[in-house]
Amino acid sequence: MNPISRRLMFLGPLGLLAVGGGAGALLLHRMADGSFDPRGVPSVLIDKPAPKFSLAPQAGHPGFDGAALVTAGTPVLINFFASWCLPCIAEAPQLLALQKRGLQIWGVAYKDREESTARFLAQHGNPFSRIARDAEGNAALEFGVYGVPETYLIDKTGIVRWRWVGALSDNVIARALDPLLAKYA
């Protein structure tokens, strides 16, 4: 080996460090601006048709199934919620505000007793125009839900466009949801 390539070999570890340091800085930057979340799991359904499912309706409310999402003819926000879930209470005002803006919001009561759901809606307001009951969590499995609340945006052709895990905040709605609503209206 000639002396120059030997010298280069000694620079190898330094190069590795430079690449690693750059990657680390980039990831930290992305973490700070929210585009990288080490715990976030992207939905595989994005840009795919919503899964098929059929559920019983909540008493006193119209229900829905997978097919209804296609025939709705308008973008629909699907919200998985439960009366036992604290972040669901936190996002209730945001959902009500979205409903006032004329957005169709359909609720899926996840692993909840019918009367508990009714009490929850009476107490925190009902933003949903249709409510289905997923007592066993089967529809949630089809959607890939791993914790409530989770919210999906389905466009008017029945294609999933967006998923949010956790409570919706005004910031999330303004930054992520509104541009998509404008795009798929």
Partner: peptide, 8 residues
């Protein structure tokens, strides 16, 4: 599993 939750 991967069809619903991805490679993750």
């Amino acid at each position: 599993m991967t069809a619903r939750y991805g490679d993750f």
